[in-house]
């Protein structure tokens, strides 16, 4: 009996080793190019980029365009996520597929498709006085289009994880559907919503294909990196790229830090 138990633990140990080896190759795959970029970029190039007004302006445009896109979509995407999590209606599966569509289509194609809606000749474009092409709003629209699925899906999963009985109990205690949403559903699903917001923001920052179709100027950092790579070569592009990576990592580390303590509190000590 004891031998059998020991043998089975031994087998588990080997199994876990195999998992760890396979898993670390994935981690390496993600980390190696980033480390390569850090190693290949000299500190002086990086500090030059950090003083380059064009680079800094592009980072500002990128961060804020993605942020506005995220905040605007949160306002309309979270209610949609709640509906998708809670209601079963005809066409729900179709709606879920439509939400995921921007992930599937090539982003340059998405950009061209967007032009028909917000371009100069379009109805919406004329409403904004000559189109959103080449404006920061246009950039936000392009970013929103390609990154919205991340927000809606994460928020929907957040709402789905809230036991429906809590909402029913709240209704029975006298709360209206609106009160239930704001006092029970959102407070319990906020981590899913925030996680969706940071995913969407991150995805927006990294968008290139749709953005370059809508707006070459004002230049976002991914577009700037592409332009410098074409015009001046690899090393010149790399320092701007690395600077954006550093800024992004700092921002998202901070976001994770904000969401962390509560997440730890929630863990079951018995589990």
């Amino acid at each position: 009996m004891a031998v059998a138990v020991r043998r089975s633990i031994g087998r588990q140990w080997w199994f876990h080793l195999v998992l760890a080896v396979l898993g670390s190759s994935v981690v390496l795959f993600v980390v190696a190019p980033l480390i390569g970029m850090v190693v290949a970029t000299s500190l002086s190039d990086l500090s030059a980029a950090a003083r380059d007004r064009v680079v800094l302006e592009s980072i500002r445009v990128t961060l804020f365009a993605a942020l506005w896109a995220t905040l605007a979509c949160t306002l309309v995407g979270v209610p949609l996520a709640y509906l998708l999590a809670r209601k079963r209606f005809a066409g729900r599966s179709l709606l879920l597929a439509i939400i995921d569509l921007p992930i599937a289509i090539p982003h340059t194609v998405a950009g061209i498709a967007l032009l028909t809606v917000i371009g100069r000749g379009s109805w919406l474009g004329q409403a904004f006085g000559g189109g959103l092409v080449g404006t920061q709003v246009g950039i936000s629209v392009a970013m929103a289009f390609v990154s919205l699925p991340f927000l809606v899906n994460a928020a929907r999963e957040g709402f789905e994880a809230v036991p429906i009985r809590l909402e029913k109990a709240a209704r029975s205690l006298g709360a209206s559907p609106r009160q239930v949403f704001f006092t029970v559903s959102v407070p319990l699903a906020w981590r899913g919503v925030v996680s969706g917001m940071s995913l969407m923001w991150a995805r927006g920052i990294s968008e290139f294909g749709a953005v370059i179709i809508i707006a070459y100027y004002p230049m976002t950092t991914p577009v700037l990196v592409y332009q410098r790579l074409n015009d001046y070569g690899l090393s010149y592009a790399r320092s701007a790229a690395l600077l954006l990576v550093v800024v992004c990592i700092a921002v998202f580390a901070f976001l994770r830090f904000l969401a962390r303590p509560a997440a730890q509190q929630r863990e079951d000590p018995d589990a």
Binding site: R165, L166, A169, A170, R171, S172, S176, L188
Partner: peptide, 20 residues
């Protein structure tokens, strides 16, 4: 009549207390 307007209250087996 919607549940919030009925003079009733329900207690579930799993209590359904609000964890937050």
């Amino acid at each position: 009549c919607p549940p919030e307007d009925r003079p009733f209250a329900i207690v579930y087996q799993d209590c359904a207390l609000f964890p937050h």
